[in-house]
Amino acid sequence: MSVDKETVARIAHLARIKMPEEALEPVTGSLNNILEWVEQLSEVNTDDVEPMTSVVHARLSQRQDGVNDGDMRDSVLKNAPNAEHGFFAVPKVIE
């Protein structure tokens, strides 16, 4: 499988990375080289093989369903490029 410039533009938008028109061609080439290279996996017979879902064989640990942390609004907002009135501030979303 390979991608064309339109697909790359669509992926870049999905990934929320602005990509100028002139960058599309080299990026498309670079992605296709990688996609062509990973194509080798199609040689491997994976019938009846389960996909890996956990790296080590261990059950996820459980904990009490209780509040054990919190009340740190100012800490959470401390690194925000723009925080106002105790909230993250962003460009206007609703007209």
């Binding site: 990973v38 996996l41 199609s42 994976t46 093989v49 389960e50 996909p51 890996m52 790296v55």
Partner: peptide, 13 residues
């Protein structure tokens, strides 16, 4: 891609 890779990963493990 992704599911296939995770299956091959099982084989590698």
């Amino acid at each position: 891609y992704y599911l296939k890779a995770q299956k091959v990963r099982s084989l590698i493990a």
